[in-house]
Design a protein around this nucleic acid. Structure first.
Lengths: 250, 250
DNA sequence: AGTCTATAAAATGTCTGACATTTAGGCTAT
DNA sequence: ATAGCCTAAATGTCAGACATTTTATAGACT
């Protein structure tokens, strides 16, 4: 594949990294392909080779590509992507044609992780944390009545789960907040929520709030599972094979 | 703080990033401090400013520092570190004086996450996965008898848990393998394993193997918890507050 | 014919120096 | 005292040259 379809104003290295990163995330190039040479990229976007190098360095850091002197730049496989790099999450946010397999993997992860995180939050949340969770929940409730406010609703949804992760009070769990935004935004773009579905989802979120307020870890875990199962239905994710990816021995 | 105590041969940008990254990880500079200017770093290590910039770009990507034009380079707080960045894990590996709070956070994370991962592994492991797990376990057994083989034993230990994460067959969980090495190596450096303690630990690992072989998720989770509790004892981690970090409203 | 070696070409890595841009702080004029 | 300008300092970008690594090719030798 070539650079032809890509064009946008490139202000700095971050801009270029985002443009190329999103192209890679949407399979504009396929794993194993040879990525265009630095000088070609520089010529196409009208920037210096130096800036291109800075951008490609970022792409390499996220595992999207691998560069070796003399050989060139190779596009890497999904299995090698650093899904937990915040930059990757940022690039994924708002992409309409995100790799479906990737979406499934992220949901499978959340399905297994979020009950634990929510349980932790129930036992570790401070008054401050609880307040943030409740505020986000109220925002969700306020925006659940109209189909026009789907995007605003999604933002509150992100804030809600983010607040839960923060409330776990663990540095590692808190880093995974970044995975929430792309995965929740994808929900908005792919599913046509009926209002009754939104209502059901809201009720399930409410049970998380209650459990955390009572400090009941068991209940919190159960409630978190209920929310994610609802989400999976809305996304129509194939349930049985959700946590399987191709096997390899590397 | 200054660069004075740092000196080593710098071959490329990765070398320099590792040296500076480790210095930051061991609190050679404190959060909020102004990091030395690019030209000073370049002069000290006898390399070009360009190479320094490449190294600092990596440090910024891991959240260790933040750079703003005109202002300079600031050292960031532990809360902002991207603990899931593989490079950070690599820099952490082998550090003897790793921040104790950081170690506690990583262990708290593993204590909550690993039961889930192990349970997933029990239901998703292929024959290949199981074979790798068993091979690592046998390596652990073989090296558990002598105090001289602690390092070799640790490597098998890493391989064991790594294989379990891989067996979960989830792209996100598999990324967290990187956290294992520093956290297991820290165990070797800090605790003086008695041989009976090693024997106990080995037995607990064995129960994980059995559970996965039987495909019993519940048992696998329980066995994983047992292993980590043993580990915590060996590390003498303060148990009650293990999953608490300072609260903040960011 | 086949294999090993030397050479050349192509791509990424590094160095150097200059200029651009952003930030902070001080200085002046009102 | 304050608004505005000016300057110094630090990071960001550009340009061109050279270094290093990898791959492919042509040639010599067996």
């Amino acid at each position: 594949m070539s650079l032809d379809t890509l064009s946008a104003h490139v202000g700095d290295a971050d801009d270029l990294a985002r443009i190329l990163g999103r192209a890679l995330l949407t399979s504009h190039w396929l794993p194993g392909d040879l990525f265009p040479r630095e000088l070609d990229v520089a010529a196409h976007f009208g920037v210096s080779r130096n800036l291109v190098r800075n951008a490609l360095t970022q792409l390499a850091a996220t595992g999207l590509i691998v560069r070796t002197a003399g050989r060139g730049t190779l596009v890497r496989d999904l299995n090698d992507w650093h899904l937990l790099d915040p930059r990757l999450s940022e690039w994924m946010s708002g992409l309409v044609d995100l790799n479906p397999q990737l979406l499934r993997e992220i949901y499978a992860f959340r399905l297994s992780a979020e009950p634990v995180v929510t349980s932790l939050a129930a036992t570790a949340a401070s008054a401050d944390d609880l307040q943030r969770i409740e505020a986000a929940f109220e925002g969700m409730a306020k925006t659940a009545t109209s189909a026009q406010k789907r995007l605003e609703h999604a933002e509150y949804d992100v804030a809600f789960h983010d607040a839960v992760y923060q409330a776990s009070h663990n540095l590692v769990w808190r880093q995974m907040e970044h995975l929430l935004r792309p995965s929740i935004l994808a929900l908005v773009q792919r599913s046509q929520h009926s209002l009754t579905a939104l209502d059901d989802s809201l009720a399930r979120h409410g049970r998380i709030v209650e459990a955390i307020r009572r400090g009941d870890g068991e209940q919190a875990a159960t409630a978190a599972r209920a929310v994610l199962e609802r989400t999976a239905e809305d996304l129509r994710l194939a349930w049985p094979g959700i946590h399987s990816s191709q096997k390899e021995t590397t």
